[in-house]
Design a protein around this nucleic acid. Structure first.
Length: 421
RNA sequence: UUCCGGUGCUUAUUAGAG
């Protein structure tokens, strides 16, 4: 049985969750409860895959069989509910664990704070952050980095810089996580040069640990400045000194080249994938596919498909959305809609962007009424609609001089708790 | 405490200005 425990954990580490769960179930069926490390690993991986209610019932049935949970077990379930934005449930588990004398750790709170921020619940996130000291469980550097990342991601840089100040006063020295969070926030907000400058300092002037992620953000910032060639040169010479790029490094370059409309060069980089240790992934393919779709380059689209088939990579939501955009662009909204139905049929969940692309494709081809019907059909699925969804419809209504409808859309937008940008 | 938990990087959507 020690071997079985180890086996399950190895399966999980290798990402083979289903097999791990299968083995786990067989053991339970024989009334054998694996050790707590193994049970916790299973609970975590189930929660991470977004099945928190399944996890919860597994948790209860384990307990009936004599499993006694520890703080890791509860933290797993808190993670699951937080990740899905099920806050009532998450808080309930937090309370229940304390009632049972199992105190949350800094990790538990950090998880809750991270997901509260992702769901735009900053007020509550900050309340928990402040309450941690009183609970005898003060924030650590990871907690600070989570908060810092949220601030930067939303473009609140004044607050971010103040926060770093406070961090330092408390003795937390910003590390590579802090700097890459700050730099990528700056990039996202369009402060490209600030991002590059910050990372140049971190990488070349300080004696900081520089890892591949920090470098990837740095390369990204250079690419945003049109310096792809420079990046390619740097990587080449760094590799001679032992630097090992990742697939993300290459994908960043791919995107940079595509943005310069240099798809030929991009394809060359793409070909090098198979030679190095890195393999092209679905992001690499989507990057090329997106460029091909924007150019209306159908032969390149076909080449990407062929290649994906050979490498056994399946189209995902983003890839299909690119194609939908292509069909909208070449005046075939019906094909766009067909693809949309295809993706649902094949079990892909459309994202808000997918819905928006569909709406825009219909609107741009003169089917505003149809777009509005679909808008209603999918309203409140996930985050849809967002501000962009309304912008698309409003733009179409104005093009048709249907200002009555424009006004209706604006009213509806406020009713959804959204504001014009 | 050689087996369990938390932080940073890459791909898709609208308008205007240039």
């Amino acid at each position: 049985s020690p071997d079985v425990n180890g086996m399950i954990i190895k399966l999980i580490r290798g990402g083979r969750i289903c097999q791990a769960y299968e083995v786990f179930s067989i053991l339970l069926g024989k009334n054998f409860i694996p050790n707590i490390f193994t049970c916790n690993s299973i609970l975590f991986s189930l929660c991470k895959s977004g099945q928190s209610y399944v996890t919860l019932s597994l948790f209860y049935s384990l307990r009936k069989k004599g499993f006694s949970p520890n703080v890791y077990s509860y933290t797993a379930i808190v993670l699951g509910f937080s990740k899905e934005g099920l806050w009532k449930e998450a808080y309930c588990v937090l309370k229940q664990m304390q009632d049972e004398g199992c105190m949350p750790t800094v990790v538990t709170y950090t998880i809750v704070i991270k997901f509260l921020c992702i769901y735009n619940k900053f007020r509550e996130a900050f309340d928990i952050f402040k309450a941690m000291d009183k609970k005898g469980c003060p924030p650590d550097l990871v907690t600070c980095n989570v908060v810092l990342h949220a601030l930067c991601y939303h473009g609140s840089f004044t607050e971010a810089y103040n926060f770093i100040q406070v961090m330092q006063e408390k003795g937390f020295i910003p590390d590579q996580f802090s700097y890459s969070a700050l730099a990528s926030g700056l990039l996202k907000a369009g402060f490209v040069n600030k991002s590059t400058d910050l990372l140049s300092q971190v990488i070349f002037e300080g004696n900081n640990t520089v890892d591949v992620v920090t470098l990837n953000v740095y390369f990204h910032s250079l690419c945003c400045n049109g310096k792809v060639k420079k990046v390619q040169g740097m990587i080449k010479s760094m590799m001679e000194k032992g630097f090992v790029p990742t697939t993300i490094t290459y994908n960043t370059i791919l995107k940079g080249l595509c943005k310069e409309a240099n798809t030929d060069e991009a394809l060359l980089v793409f070909d090098k994938f198979s030679h190095g240790g890195n393999e092209a992934d679905v992001v690499s393919f989507n990057t090329i596919l997106s460029a091909a779709c924007k150019q209306g380059n159908s032969s390149l689209i076909r080449r990407v498909f062929t290649r994906m088939g050979i490498e056994g990579i399946k189209l995902d939501t983003i890839g299909i959305t690119c194609l939908m955009q292509y069909y909208g662009k070449i005046g075939k909204p019906q094909e766009c809609y067909t693809l949309f139905k295809y993706m649902i049929l094949h079990g892909h969940i459309p994202s808000t962007i997918t819905y928006n692309v569909l709406l825009d494709s219909l609107c741009k081809n003169g089917f505003l009424a149809c777009a509005y019907r679909i808008f209603h059909e999918f309203k409140n699925m996930g985050n849809f609609p967002d501000t962009t969804s309304y912008n698309i419809l409003i733009n179409a209504s104005i093009s048709k001089s249907d200002y009555f409808f424009t006004k209706h859309l604006l009213t509806d937008m406020y009713r959804q708790g959204l504001q014009p940008d």
